[in-house]
Simulated assay, not measured.
Amino acid sequence: MKPKRVLITGAAGFLGSHLCDRFMAEDYEVIAMDNLITGNIENIEHLLPLPNFTFHHQDITNYVHVSGDLDYILHFASPASPVDYLKIPIQTLKVGSLGTHNLLGLAKHKNARMLIASTSEIYGDPLMHPQTEDYWGNVDPVGPRGVYDESKRFQEALTMAYHNFHGVETRIARIFNTYGPRMRLNDGRVFPAFIGQALRGENLTVFGNGKQTRSFCYIDDLVNGIHKLLMSDYSEPVNLGNPEEITILNFANEVLSLTKGKNKIIHKELPQNDPKKRKPDISRAEKILGWSPKVSRKEGLEKTLDYFNSLPENKLFKREHKKFDGYIKK
């Protein structure tokens, strides 16, 4: 019996690479795609020699072709951190619009089920707390974060249009802050920023007074949630995240406590449109998918720190700079 085939875009990124691992472990044929503009080939290097794994160095905003049958598409291609999407705003908008359109067309042609990686950022700086899937959000479309927020909001609208008009089987995962091994330590988001600063012996930077909140989900929990959603019969958006909320300042102190460093906490001006509150309401995921996160923040932090402590220094702080020189499968 031939294995089922799945296309994963953004496959060399943090989330995408863990999804590649999951589907390879379940004996799928995995077709990985990434233009490596923010992804890192090292994240999937261990999979390249395997017979059921194929990597395509491709920008999905161009025409996407996959030969043969295709059962599933997981669309995880997009810059996801402020450092990236503020530097490449046009590419961010294109991957959410043109890229999503190309993949939905492919899903329609192949009769494949497609899951898109949306984000809690579609809620903007929320006026509802915690955030439910029925909340429409508070987003500034022309602010600095608008290129990412509106890219994801359009992506959801286009996905639902293909579902309703063309009958394409689609799933929408609204992903909240996630962390774990293979994160980029300089991508500008709270969790990797604190871990990177702590490991480098630098002071931890807290923006504003630090009373803004976030909710952090460990990567293994998120991958399980994505898998459950993909295999479900539910087509409306579903929040995936850990509802355990913590202030940025308290989280900075947790990191310092775990790393046992002598770093200090310094405060800088809060960036424009930075969300004050982030906490998912996961009632829908619990009811529809039977899913909730299992890994505590303490356990997840320890696993993540163990991973980064195991890396040699040249990979710890420079691993995102490795270039892809091409790979020919034997």
Rank of each mutant, 00 (worst) to 15 (best):
K2Q: 09
P3A: 03
K4I: 05
K4C: 03
R5M: 07
V6E: 13
V6C: 09
V6Y: 00
L7N: 14
L7S: 10
G10L: 15
A12Q: 02
F14N: 03
L15A: 10
H18A: 05
C20E: 11
R22M: 01
F23Y: 04
F23Q: 13
D34R: 03
I37N: 10
N40E: 14
N43I: 01
I44Q: 03
P51Q: 08
H57K: 11
Q58I: 02
D59R: 05
D59S: 08
T61R: 10
Y63T: 09
S67E: 15
D71F: 02
L74G: 05
P79S: 11
P79I: 08
A80R: 11
A80E: 14
P82D: 01
P82L: 06
L86P: 09
K87Q: 11
K87N: 01
P89W: 10
P89D: 07
Q91M: 04
T92M: 10
T92A: 13
T92W: 01
K94P: 01
G96E: 00
G96F: 02
S97H: 04
G99H: 00
T100V: 09
L103Q: 03
G105E: 11
A107N: 01
H109L: 12
N111L: 03
A112R: 06
R113I: 05
R113G: 11
L115R: 00
E121Y: 07
G124I: 13
P126Y: 14
P126A: 09
P130T: 07
Q131G: 06
T132A: 10
W136I: 06
G137M: 13
G137C: 11
V139S: 09
P144F: 08
G146C: 12
Y148N: 12
D149N: 10
R153C: 02
Q155A: 12
Q155E: 12
E156H: 13
L158S: 04
T159G: 03
A161F: 01
Y162T: 10
N164Y: 14
N164I: 12
N164T: 08
G167H: 04
R174E: 14
T178S: 08
Y179S: 07
G180T: 06
P181R: 13
P181M: 14
N186W: 07
G188P: 14
R189W: 07
V190Y: 08
P192V: 03
G196Y: 08
T205L: 05
V206P: 04
V206M: 14
G210M: 15
K211I: 12
T213Q: 02
T213K: 04
S215L: 11
F216P: 00
D220N: 13
Y234E: 10
Y234A: 02
E236Y: 06
L240Q: 09
L240Y: 05
N242L: 02
E245A: 01
E245Y: 15
E245L: 02
I248V: 12
I248K: 11
F251E: 02
S257M: 15
K260G: 10
K260Q: 11
G261R: 04
I265H: 09
H267Y: 07
E269Y: 14
K277W: 14
K277T: 07
K279C: 11
P280T: 08
S283I: 08
R284V: 08
A285H: 02
A285K: 04
I288Y: 02
G290H: 09
W291I: 01
W291F: 00
P293N: 00
V295E: 00
L301E: 07
Y307I: 11
N309W: 15
L311R: 14
P312E: 06
E313D: 06
K315M: 05
K318S: 02
K318W: 14
K323F: 06
F324N: 01
K329Y: 08
K330Q: 05
